[in-house]
């Protein structure tokens, strides 16, 4: 009967195994400190998850809850509005992600090229600021700027002064999405540059010196040195944000209206409308929410797999 060999360190010393109980006692201060954290997570994050069971119940504000199995899911999949919202969520989120990532990369590259520190810092501050505005304020600002009333709306006033046709920017189905992306670019590009600028600060200056020696122009240095240096970070940012595409809500909620609902209603606004209707069926809202979470969870797993493939390690 062979005896189990003790595990050894690289220098050949046996690794001593301390029983778990002893370890916990030795570090009891930390474990004690950790207990409230565990309790907090359980109560605030896991306990509410028990609410997903209501996806299988007829659950209204009044009257008894009744188990109805998958009925809500059947209703949901048969509802045209749900599929419109689902499609809009994916389209809006993914395009928004691609566009804002691209603009953040471009802005980072240009900021990185700026030598005048005061101008660089000022510009950075200016483009960061919109990130700290709430979406309600942003919507108010752009609603005024883009007001279809040409006497009050700056953009339509200019169009009218130039003899052009005024536009209903936030009420027109063909214009709403481009405007939505532009507002997102304005609000989030600055913030998005932080991670790319951090990456660029770590690029070896010798690469630029070598490029100079090789006679590279400024644009060639950007294209052959800066952009490749950012490639890995771009992929990571895209992957990490892909997991969040189902969470689109606030930016849409404050900007949409009945005229553009077909191109703007997303899963979260769909749930909101169902949850705050008169005598809502919370079971149905929960079912849609559960579906959204499942899709979100699947996206996280896909992103994790992609991350492993691209970076050699996962994100979870």
């Amino acid at each position: 009967m062979s005896r189990r060999q003790p595990r050894m360190t690289s220098s050949g010393q046996p690794i001593r195994h301390t029983p778990l109980g002893t370890k916990m006692w030795n570090y009891r201060g930390y474990y004690l400190m950790f207990v409230p954290v565990v309790l907090f997570v359980i109560i605030m994050h896991y306990w509410p998850m028990l609410g997903v069971r209501f996806a299988f119940y007829n659950y209204r504000a009044f009257g008894a809850k009744t188990f109805i199995g998958l009925e809500h899911f059947r209703t949901m999949f048969g509802e045209k509005g749900f599929w419109t919202a689902f499609k809009n969520t994916l389209e809006l989120s993914i395009w928004k992600l691609l566009i804002t990532t691209l603009t953040a990369v471009v802005a980072s590259v240009f900021l990185n090229e700026m030598n005048q520190m005061f101008a660089k810092k000022t510009l950075q501050t200016v483009i960061y600021l919109p990130h700290f505005m709430s979406w309600a304020v942003v919507a108010g600002i752009f609603s005024m700027i883009l007001s279809p009333n040409a006497a009050n709306g700056m953009v339509n006033g200019m169009l009218q002064d130039m003899g052009l046709k005024t536009q209903m920017f936030l009420q027109d189905k063909t214009l709403w999405r481009p405007i939505f992306y532009i507002i997102n670019i304005w609000k989030e590009t600055g913030w998005g540059t932080i991670i790319f600028l951090a990456t660029l600060s770590g690029v070896n200056p010798e690469l630029y010196e070598a490029a100079d020696i090789d006679g590279a122009t400024r644009m060639q240095k950007i294209w052959y040195v800066t952009v490749p240096a950012l490639a890995n970070t771009i992929v990571v940012v895209l992957i990490l944000n892909l997991a969040k595409v189902m969470n689109l809500f606030e930016s849409v909620f404050v900007l949409y209206n009945s005229a553009v609902m077909d191109v703007s209603d997303v899963i979260s606004t769909f749930i909101y409308a169902k949850a705050f209707a008169a005598n809502p069926n919370y079971g149905y809202s929960t079912a849609v929410g559960l579906f959204k979470s499942l899709v979100g969870g699947a996206l996280v797993l896909i992103c994790n797999a992609l991350s492993k493939k691209v970076r050699g390690r996962g994100i979870i």
Binding site: S258, A259, A278
Partner: peptide, 18 residues
């Protein structure tokens, strides 16, 4: 009632705006 009100608003907007 909420779904119907939303559908009415959409129909009106489709004619008036689009």
């Amino acid at each position: 009632s909420s779904d119907i009100a939303t559908a009415r608003s959409k129909a009106i907007a489709a004619v008036v705006v689009d």
